[in-house]
Amino acid sequence: MQRVNMIMAESPGLITICLLGYLLSAECTVFLDHENANKILNRPKRYNSGKLEEFVQGNLERECMEEKCSFEEAREVFENTERTTEFWKQYVDGDQCESNPCLNGGSCKDDINSYECWCPFGFEGKNCELDVTCNIKNGRCEQFCKNSADNKVVCSCTEGYRLAENQKSCEPAVPFPCGRVSVSQTSKLTRAETVFPDVDYVNSTEAETILDNITQSTQSFNDFTRVVGGEDAKPGQFPWQVVLNGKVDAFCGGSIVNEKWIVTAAHCVETGVKITVVAGEHNIEETEHTEQKRNVIRIIPHHNYNAAINKYNHDIALLELDEPLVLNSYVTPICIADKEYTNIFLKFGSGYVSGWGRVFHKGRSALVLQYLRVPLVDRATCLRSTKFTIYNNMFCAGFHEGGRDSCQGDSGGPHVTEVEGTSFLTGIISWGEECAMKGKYGIYTKVSRYVNWIKEKTKLT
């Protein structure tokens, strides 16, 4: 034993070699072989497995989906700052455009905790909710729209109204504003409101030439003092309507412009014939205590009207009353817009006519005020429907199939267009061939041609 100890002390290297040989010859039971080890760690190889990531292109799944990435790591994937920024906006807080917040056709661009709407022409605001041009839906104005110097929408209202708090709607500024039905039992019968379409306001006024200088022999019209197929109006439903009495009662109609003036057809009036105007009328054979009678003290036909040349060209006249009318729910003026808007309103496509005229061709006159909704007829169809001249200051309205029309005794009465609950004068009943005849239409004086003249002559002093 002493000898062994001496050998170990003198030859430590020998001992180490012996131990190493023993270990190498022993069977290893701690580690699995290569094949079995792979069965336990069965993990798919990654895209760049075996390579240094710093030297390969980034992978979106590896960089940002398996674990949260930084902007720089995302930049490695896209290799483009702009594309990385677009991805980053949604990656950080989701897609803010998912709810489609942009209105009126706006395009949404996502941002971090926010979004941006790219608005089409005519709109602005956070969600493109603000109209900035009158060309689109009248700028959301209830009545009139004008573009300011910086191309912003400025709404306005006709006389007797003021802008509401929203700067879009119009509200009454006087007790009985024009064009409004205020009798409670008839307010439910107000005709369907007309909503502004998209309009090209630059070209809204037709490029028409008034044929002022045409000389033409007097034409022989049949029954051209021209509501057939209409309905009984309720008291106060058309408070701007008046009836004219002269040699015979209810020979023509008219509309209240203001307390002192009536507008009617020029062919209705004769110099030297006494005319009485009755406002607030409903049943011409009954006294309903809503009527107001006034005498006409002055007749002003349009300066281009000449019955000797043509009885229905420039067929418009103004009547001055001896005493002002007292405005109330049964006696209310009709609204008159400017030339541009009167023309736009007419193009809405349908209007209402009213009167006490004959209820059928050569038949009896109506006792109760009649009204009828009539569609506008395109000019080409209008011209083809008659052998008589249709001037540019006239328009056609009615039904091709016949059966409904204005008729004798309705002449001078109103053709009105309702705009968001307020009625505007767009025409004056003038003439036609018979009444409600198939293929024939009622012919009306186009008020847009005469609004400046009306307003100039009827100013209240």
Score class of each variant (00 low, 15 high):
residue 161 Y to K: 01
residue 388 F to N: 10
residue 282 H to F: 08
residue 366 A to R: 07
residue 58 G to M: 09
residue 115 Y to V: 03
residue 275 I to T: 05
residue 338 D to H: 05
residue 2 Q to V: 13
residue 179 G to A: 01
residue 18 C to Q: 04
residue 33 D to V: 09
residue 253 G to E: 04
residue 215 T to I: 08
residue 391 Y to M: 14
residue 215 T to A: 09
residue 135 N to F: 09
residue 251 F to D: 03
residue 261 W to C: 01
residue 426 T to E: 00
residue 256 I to P: 01
residue 216 Q to G: 06
residue 180 R to D: 02
residue 378 D to R: 06
residue 197 P to D: 08
residue 79 E to L: 03
residue 147 N to A: 13
residue 361 H to M: 11
residue 426 T to N: 01
residue 151 N to I: 07
residue 332 T to V: 14
residue 358 R to G: 12
residue 44 P to F: 05
residue 148 S to F: 07
residue 262 I to N: 00
residue 173 A to Q: 07
residue 167 Q to G: 05
residue 328 N to E: 02
residue 105 G to N: 05
residue 146 K to W: 08
residue 43 R to S: 14
residue 375 P to N: 15
residue 417 T to Q: 03
residue 278 V to I: 05
residue 364 R to N: 15
residue 106 G to H: 01
residue 295 N to F: 06
residue 143 Q to E: 02
residue 284 I to V: 11
residue 190 T to K: 13
residue 191 R to C: 05
residue 405 D to L: 13
residue 71 F to K: 08
residue 411 S to M: 15
residue 443 I to W: 10
residue 159 E to G: 07
residue 277 V to A: 06
residue 95 D to S: 12
residue 190 T to Q: 13
residue 222 N to R: 14
residue 102 C to S: 00
residue 215 T to V: 10
residue 280 G to N: 02
residue 217 S to I: 11
residue 290 T to P: 05
residue 35 E to W: 06
residue 443 I to E: 02
residue 448 S to N: 04
residue 311 K to D: 03
residue 436 A to C: 07
residue 234 K to I: 14
residue 381 T to A: 12
residue 397 A to K: 02
residue 198 D to A: 15
residue 277 V to P: 01
residue 343 N to L: 04
residue 423 S to R: 09
residue 258 N to H: 04
residue 456 E to D: 13
residue 367 L to G: 14
residue 373 R to N: 12
residue 42 N to R: 05
residue 195 V to D: 14
residue 164 A to I: 04
residue 81 T to F: 06
residue 351 G to L: 01
residue 96 Q to S: 15
residue 388 F to Q: 14
residue 407 C to A: 04
residue 148 S to D: 09
residue 272 G to I: 07
residue 231 E to V: 11
residue 182 S to P: 06
residue 354 S to T: 14
residue 431 W to R: 09
residue 276 T to I: 10
residue 409 G to V: 07
residue 124 E to H: 04
residue 97 C to Y: 00
residue 33 D to W: 07
residue 221 F to A: 12
residue 404 R to H: 15
residue 104 N to V: 00
residue 371 Y to C: 06
residue 372 L to K: 13
residue 225 T to E: 13
residue 448 S to V: 03
residue 211 L to R: 05
residue 112 I to Y: 11
residue 265 A to Q: 03
residue 334 I to E: 00
residue 442 G to P: 04
residue 116 E to A: 04
residue 419 V to M: 09
residue 168 K to P: 02
residue 106 G to K: 00
residue 219 Q to H: 13
residue 35 E to K: 09
residue 304 N to H: 08
residue 245 N to D: 06
residue 44 P to Y: 10
residue 220 S to K: 13
residue 207 A to W: 12
residue 8 M to Q: 12
residue 312 Y to R: 10
residue 170 C to R: 01
residue 399 F to K: 04
residue 116 E to I: 02
residue 386 T to H: 10
residue 14 L to N: 02
residue 290 T to H: 15
residue 147 N to H: 11
residue 240 W to V: 01
residue 331 V to G: 00
residue 191 R to L: 14
residue 405 D to A: 08
residue 449 R to Y: 15
residue 31 F to Y: 14
residue 373 R to D: 03
residue 223 D to R: 10
residue 436 A to L: 09
residue 246 G to I: 04
residue 116 E to W: 02
residue 60 L to T: 07
residue 356 W to A: 03
residue 18 C to I: 14
residue 203 N to Y: 09
residue 264 T to P: 01
residue 60 L to F: 10
residue 437 M to E: 11
residue 140 R to T: 04
residue 258 N to G: 03
